[in-house]
Design a protein around this nucleic acid. Structure first.
Length: 458
RNA sequence: GGUCCCUUCGUCUAUCGGUUAGGACAUGUGGUUUUCAUCCAUAAAAGAGGGGUUCGAUUCCCCUAGGGACCGCCA
């Protein structure tokens, strides 16, 4: 165990876990596992208005589903607020921060003015030197005004920024609560985080947080900013886009290992390898393999990878997934039908891309409806069905192997092709043209049910 | 608008100065098949543009163009 390597995934519980967050969590977790370090989960719930317990639970639950399990119990940032305030006051007394009495209206005016003049808005910092007092104030960090700061990002490489572009950011709100910049810095320090792996959208924040670290004389962690996941339109993924939350994928029957595998290969690669077991991904993952450009979500690829896992997973494991999926997202299947599905599971899984496909493929077992007879079946087909029924009437469930001969006899007798026989039988037995082979249908239904369904039409 | 980042087939990506620029998904075609699917084979498909450096650039540098992120008392 390498105790020097500690990473964290720090979502805010303001919505369900989305796909970008899941990937960040995965990369953090894989990095820690690969390095023999520690992977922690910190719930950033300092925004009281938007944070919800249900989302916190949802995020933890979803990570569990993906088998991205933190090495320690989740930490709630809100429980640490006293420490954050303490640091703010410390900064204040050391002269690294100051009280700002500017009113909301005052700042709005400044913003408007710079917008009008087409200038970038940066807080003027006028309260730094003024002796203004008042009842309401925020605490701002004294950002460096000159020089440049270099961030050696583990993914992006060297990033140099002019300090003057970083404003005196707020670290304590007027209600004396800490802002994100402060809380994140303090907690990263307290939790001894060695590597901060997060989305690219945090890059500017890093320059702010580094200054807090420097002021407090804390050791600065390493940073890795991973490119964002874009929608098909090439924009940052938003709630409006389709399939943005992990739940969206769960709902259509994507397996956790498939989603993990897909997410791993989205923005990271190892040679030509596409399919990674969990063990392999831990062994092979590294920050160097992360690309620099944002990548787009591709549902076709998700489905394709899922199909690979559906085809290759051990049958019991897959059936357990299926059962769980049905209880969570579909109407209950009665025990007899479920058992039929289980004993003939390979029939249904072989033509499925998702668990939902398996469910749909097996529908004819538990959700059989008599079809519009007149429309689909003509008289000669009806005679065929009758003949077939008569021939299989004496059969028992263990005599499936005789069906093949019976069908061959009928084909010879009537001098027809299999298609002419198969089509009506398939429709009558399943209610759809797209179903497994006749043999498989009969085996999965059982002889009695087959007879029953055939006689419905005679 | 300012700051920063990015740019190889439609998509995810390989290439760490010399390759017929490779793979996967999707797509087209053909074959297997008891419908549908699977499976197999095969095809088409890419270095944004312009300058350098170099014997040689997709690869290194610069410019242009395009795209993106950030610019909250949200995180």
């Amino acid at each position: 165990m390498n105790n020097n390597i500690i990473v964290r995934f720090a979502p805010s519980p303001t919505g369900p876990l989305h796909i970008g967050g899941a990937r960040t969590a995965l990369f953090n977790w894989l990095f820690a596992k690969n390095q023999g370090g520690l992977s922690l989960l910190r719930i950033e719930d300092t925004d009281k208005a938007r944070s919800k317990k249900e989302f916190e639970d949802q995020i933890i639950e979803t990570l569990k589903w993906l088998e991205i399990n933190p090495d320690e119990d989740p930490v709630k940032q809100s429980l640490n607020i006293n420490k954050h305030v303490e640091v703010a006051n410390n900064l204040l007394s050391k002269g690294f921060a100051y009280k700002c009495y500017c009113s909301y209206e005052e700042l709005e005016k400044e913003k408007e003015l710079s917008k009008k003049n087409n200038l970038p808005y940066v807080y003027s910092g006028k309260c730094r030197e003024s002796n203004k007092t008042g009842s309401s104030f925020v605490v701002r960090f004294k950002s460096k005004k000159s020089g440049t700061t270099i961030l050696n990002d583990l993914v992006q490489g060297k990033i140099e920024i002019s300090n003057s572009t970083i404003e005196d950011f707020v670290i304590l709100r007027s209600d004396n609560t800490p802002t994100y910049q402060l809380s994140a810095s303090v907690d990263d320090h307290l939790m001894k985080i060695s590597h901060v792996i997060r989305g690219d959208d945090h890059k500017i924040n890093t320059f702010k947080q580094i200054q807090i670290f420097e002021a407090m004389n804390w050791e600065i962690p390493s940073y890795a900013h991973i490119p964002l996941i874009h929608s098909m339109e090439g924009k940052k993924l938003s709630k409006r886009d389709a399939a943005t939350t992990v739940e969206d994928y769960k709902k259509i029957g994507i397996l956790p290992e498939s989603l993990r595998n897909y997410l791993l290969r989205l923005g990271w690669s190892y040679k030509d390898k596409e399919i990674f077991t969990l063990k392999e991904s831990i062994e092979l993952f590294n920050l160097e393999g992360i690309g620099k450009s944002p990548s787009k979500l591709d549902m076709d690829r998700v489905l394709s990878i899922n199909e690979t896992y559906i085809k290759n997973l051990n049958e019991n494991t897959l059936f357990n997934y299926f059962e769980l999926y049905v209880t969570n997202y579909k109407e209950k299947i009665n025990d007899i039908s479920l058992n039929k599905i289980k004993t003939n599971f390979s029939i249904f899984r072989n033509k499925a891309k998702t668990l939902e496909d398996i469910f749909n493929n097996a529908q004819f077992i538990f959700n059989y409806k008599k079809i519009n007879f007149e429309k689909e079946i003509n008289d000669s087909q009806k005679k065929l069905l009758n003949l077939f029924l008569e021939k299989i009437r004496p059969l028992q469930d263990h005599e499936f192997d005789k069906i093949k001969t019976i069908i061959e006899d009928i084909l010879n007798e009537k001098k027809i092709k299999f298609k002419d026989f198969g089509q009506p039988v398939r429709i009558v037995l399943t209610g759809t043209k797209f179903a497994p082979s006749i043999n498989e249908i009969i085996v999965s239904l059982g002889i009695e049910e087959t007879k029953k369904r055939l006689s419905l039409y005679l």
